[in-house]
Design a binder for these strands. Structure first.
Length: 378
DNA sequence: TCCAATGATTATGC
DNA sequence: GCATAATCATTGGA
């Protein structure tokens, strides 16, 4: 207050022509009128206001008040400092961009869907294209809603800012409002609207996350590999029976051939090894008195029809597994002995796989395209 | 509807 | 980090 009075007096002492004035009493009166104006009735205040605006001191007083306000604004701004860039809104922006919601429209959604598919550990095959397109469609929907809302928000923000600016400019005729003050007000408005924008972005992110998790859940559902893929995997397994551990390169190759992921190839081989071994184990303990039946079963398996084989499901499974060994070793009926059958290649007496010769040392089964690998393990 | 087959997940060990 | 073993959960044929 002291500062204000000092400034007012300083200005009051200097007239329009630069000469020192002695009418500080007038200014005191004006100030007094300003201070008491709120206590007066509206009509009375209007009359006073009109009188004040017509007063010859008005321009000088106005500039003084502007100067005081300017100083106050500057001190407030100095205390507040500029806000650091909002990390959260940046995170949201990055996420929306990565998910294909914001940014270039073309391919965004499908890229995100593909990423989701990879993250789920499932290949992008023909069987899941329906889910894929469903995901894309929903993501596009989210994208459209987001952009519509964002547009609305921007329009509202712009309209409101313009409105407030006009209002302040209008008011600046009757009360001291500097350009900087208007600018500051605009900043405040933008800050307020930015929190609304953040809510919109947050909601969009949540929607995308929900959509994505549903998409991933759907993909987690087990799907049987197609016949061709199973054949390729089986072929590799039985042709590398002495060491059924495909290298990373081999896994990649198999994954590509079967249109599945490397993880799925690894899963498949993990399951295959253990189930194969398990079946071999139970086959080994199988009563030798049944060997004749088993032998007949195997013979029938080598033909086109084995449906009629009167074997229990478990035995048939074992037979199926053994058939691959037989095919691989080239032993069919001739020379087929218990030793051959129950000492499958690659498995040592402890149930572990023997140290492998190089995979290439094992010959591949010579099966026709119509042959079926259908052991219990896979 | 049952149940074997099978892909995926989890716990454990090395 | 990978392999194994057990288990879960779903599929698909009879």
């Amino acid at each position: 207050m002291d500062e204000q009075q000092r400034l007012m007096h300083a200005h009051a002492r200097v007239g329009m022509d630069g000469s020192e004035r002695r009418d500080t009493g007038d200014i005191g009166d004006i100030l007094q009128q300003i201070m008491t104006i709120t206590d007066q009735s509206l009509d009375e205040a209007q009359a006073r206001k009109h009188a004040l605006s017509c007063d010859r001191m008005k321009p000088a007083l106005f500039s003084v008040l502007c100067e005081i306000k300017e100083k106050t604004v500057l001190s407030i701004r100095g205390a507040q400092e500029e806000d650091p860039p909002d990390a959260q809104i940046m995170r949201l922006d990055n996420m929306l961009l990565a998910e294909g919601v914001s940014g270039p429209e073309k391919g965004g959604a499908s890229v995100a869907a593909a990423a989701a598919a990879v993250a789920a550990g499932g290949g992008v095959g023909a069987d899941n294209s329906a889910e894929h397109s469903d995901y894309r469609a929903k993501l596009t929907q989210i994208r459209q809603i987001y952009h519509t809302e964002l547009e609305k928000y921007e329009q509202a923000c712009s309209e409101f800012t313009t409105h407030v600016m006009n209002l302040l400019r209008e008011q600046s005729r009757t009360r001291p409002i500097s350009a900087k003050e208007i600018e500051r007000m605009v900043t405040i408005i933008h800050r307020k609207f930015s929190s609304i924008q953040m809510q919109l972005k947050q909601s969009t992110c949540e929607a995308v996350m929900i959509l994505r998790s549903r998409f991933l859940d759907a993909r987690r559902k087990r799907r049987n590999f197609n016949k061709q893929a199973t054949e390729i995997l089986n072929e590799y397994f039985y042709s590398h029976l002495s060491n059924p551990y495909p290298s990373e390169e081999a896994k990649e190759e198999l994954a590509k051939k079967c249109a599945i992921t490397i993880a799925q190839v690894s899963n498949w081989f993990g399951n295959k090894r253990i189930r194969y071994k398990k079946n071999i184990g139970s086959a080994a303990s199988f009563n030798m008195s049944n060997s004749a039946d088993l032998f007949m079963g195997i013979q029938s398996l080598n033909g086109d029809s084995y449906q009629g084989a009167q074997l229990g499901a478990n035995v048939q499974s074992q037979v199926d597994g053994l058939r691959h060994v037989i095919n691989q070793t080239g032993v069919y009926s001739e020379g087929l002995s218990a030793n051959h059958m129950y000492s499958p290649q690659g498995l040592n007496t402890n149930g572990g796989w023997q140290d492998a010769a190089t995979p290439s040392s094992v010959t591949s089964p010579t099966e026709g395209p119509g042959s079926v690998h259908s052991d219990t393990s896979n």
